[in-house]
Amino acid sequence: MSAEVFTEHVIVWLGPVPLTRTMATSVATSLFLWGALAPVGRAVARAPEGRLAAAGRLMYRFLRDLVTETVGHPSRGLEVFSGSLFLFIAGASLLGQLPGFAPPTTNLAATSALAALVFLAVPFAGIRARGLAGYVKRYFQPSPLLFPLHLVSELSRTLALALRLFGNMMSGHLIVALIVALVGLLVPVPLMALDLLIGLLQAYIFTILASVYIGAAIRVGEEEGA
């Protein structure tokens, strides 16, 4: 049993730059998503009929409804961002069921990177939608005294995003690894199914939370006006 919970397995050092296993799995996940979803996009563009195209449109409509409800109006950038987040996390969880494949989301650095992207996307989207003053005003909203609390909230929720994803994925992965080490055949299957379910659920939760955070930054002025 290899207990690489916080350590990182470096495959090869390219000079000063290490090439880690997480990097490899994330690239593999990206390539898998690309290969799996590019035909969907082509199918939708070529012919609106067919199962692939129907699945793609269904998914996109679901995503658009989600974003529209969160933000208050359709937002292309947030659609792409949230959709990619969901697809990446879910795809990683799916690939994680392959034997010997540790999904990149079991790495704390990877989940921290995703959370950091969400953290950065919040002011980006807020400033783009409301302007710098309109966005910054949000931090002083009910009272200027709450500015530190806002900051702490931003940081802590980012930390929570990263740790939640990492903890869920890693716990599932660890449990499956433990059972595999103990029994081996067929017994880990239900736990793997649970792991897969948790992975998809976490992808959904991560996506929703990211949408809610970014959407709140976008619609700050609207709430003020309401």
Binding site: S26, S30, W34, G41, R42, G83, L85, A113, L114
Partner: peptide, 20 residues
């Protein structure tokens, strides 16, 4: 990971979300 995800988002946005 950050760069990888941004590239993935761009690729998916170009190949998947835009046509849909």
């Amino acid at each position: 990971e950050a760069v990888n995800f941004l590239v993935l988002a761009a690729v998916l946005g170009w190949l998947l979300f835009k046509p849909i």
